[in-house]
């Protein structure tokens, strides 16, 4: 039986389309009131999971419960869950206020009440007084806020967001990340957020589920996902960590497993020999706050980042790499 404190729980949920296993035996427990991110490359099953929660898809196998109630066979219109769509899906024939009031209208809420609630919701997303406009007259960022207001006005128990920031430019995206986070804290609603942008997932979410090939590769806090990736895929996908082969890891930890080493954990000494891993600098990429180095450690390609102001080696120079034993993270992937 599902845990009563969990907002959404997946038990061995699969969704197959013909021979394609879009979602394959996923177990999830999304806690009430948390900001939960589903992160993964396209085709990894994260969006299908979101659609399973919304009710647009039904699982091929397994069970989904929303706040302890089984969602088996429950259509989208009877779930206390609302979605912010990737393309916003605003109704072009209705003005902004009627768009926001739509959910209340179909539920039979009296006109005066639904209009005042819709106006309130527009204030919440900082678009007061925009009610009379058509969606076509709004900018991308404004449409996104309307879509948010249209979902929130129904007071859902879970708000689903399908790559809601994907269509916005960088500056706007950063503002919206901040705002979504504050909104979620203020409302206390469970947010489930789908994204392929690891930076977005790490900065916004309380917990992150990393998806790969229809399965959950790892669930954890952003710190756990970033510092202690359990598989090569997670290490590589989240923040381009250095993935180290078992024979390398064995020398330092004694375990015959794959390991990961964050680029910023590598220290570089300008020397031709010494205590550490000899390497050659292949290239340097200036990135503002840091400089990224591509290194060749006896055939092993490594990335390192040096903070601004650090002494930089030159391209082609021989260096010696050192790192703390603790920063070498041994993963679950065996040899």
């Amino acid at each position: 039986m599902a845990n009563m404190t969990s907002a959404v729980s997946f038990q061995k949920v699969s969704r197959h389309f013909g021979s394609v296993r879009a979602v394959d035996g996923v177990d999830l427990d999304i806690r009430s009131g948390e900001f939960f991110a589903m992160l993964g490359p396209s085709g990894s099953g994260k969006t299908t999971c979101l659609r399973l929660i919304a009710g647009f898809e039904q699982p091929t196998a397994g069970h989904i419960a929303i706040f302890g109630e089984s969602a088996d066979g429950v259509p989208p219109y009877r779930r206390n869950v609302n979605t912010v769509f990737q393309d916003y899906a605003l109704f072009p024939h209705l003005n902004v206020l009627d768009n926001v009031a739509y959910g209340l209208m179909v539920k039979g809420v009296a006109k005066a009440e639904r209009m005042s609630k819709a106006e309130e919701a527009l204030k919440l997303v900082q678009l007061p007084g925009y009610g009379g406009r058509r969606p076509g007259q709004l900018s991308g960022g404004q449409r996104q806020r309307v879509a948010l207001a249209r979902a929130l006005v129904n007071e859902p128990k879970v708000l689903l967001l399908d790559e809601p920031l994907g269509a916005l430019d960088l500056k706007l995206r950063e503002n919206m990340q901040e705002e979504l986070k504050l909104l979620q804290k203020a409302l206390g609603i469970t947010f489930v957020f789908v994204t392929h942008d690891q930076g977005e997932a790490l900065s916004m979410a309380d917990r992150v589920a990393v998806f790969n090939n229809g399965r959950v590769a790892q669930i954890g806090t952003p710190e756990e996902i970033y510092q202690k990736p359990q598989t090569r895929f997670v290490a590589d996908f989240v923040g381009s960590s250095n993935v180290l082969p078992p024979d390398f890891v064995k020398r330092y930890s004694g375990q015959n497993r794959w390991g990961s080493l964050r680029p910023e954990a590598i220290r570089i000494t300008r020397a031709t020999s010494g205590d550490g891993v000899p390497a050659r600098v292949l290239s340097l990429h200036y990135m503002g706050a840091a400089t990224r180095l591509a290194l060749d450690a006896q055939g092993l390609r490594l990335n390192a980042t040096l903070p601004a102001g650090a002494a930089l080696p030159e391209q082609g120079e021989s260096v010696v790499l050192t790192f703390n034993r603790e920063s070498l993270h041994v993963m679950e992937d065996g040899a």
Binding site: A54, G55, F56, P75, P76, Y77, V81, N82, T83, F85, Q86, D87, A89, L90, F91, P92, H93, L94, Y102, G103, M105, V106, K107, R150, A151, N154
Partner: peptide
């Protein structure tokens, strides 16, 4: 996704047809 949005907001099939599909 407009039809899905309508269902997501609580509209049943006929309501979706009347309020979203038909006007469009």
């Amino acid at each position: 996704s407009m039809i899905e949005a309508s269902m997501d907001l609580g509209a049943k099939g006929l309501q979706t047809f009347r309020h979203v599909v038909l006007p469009n």
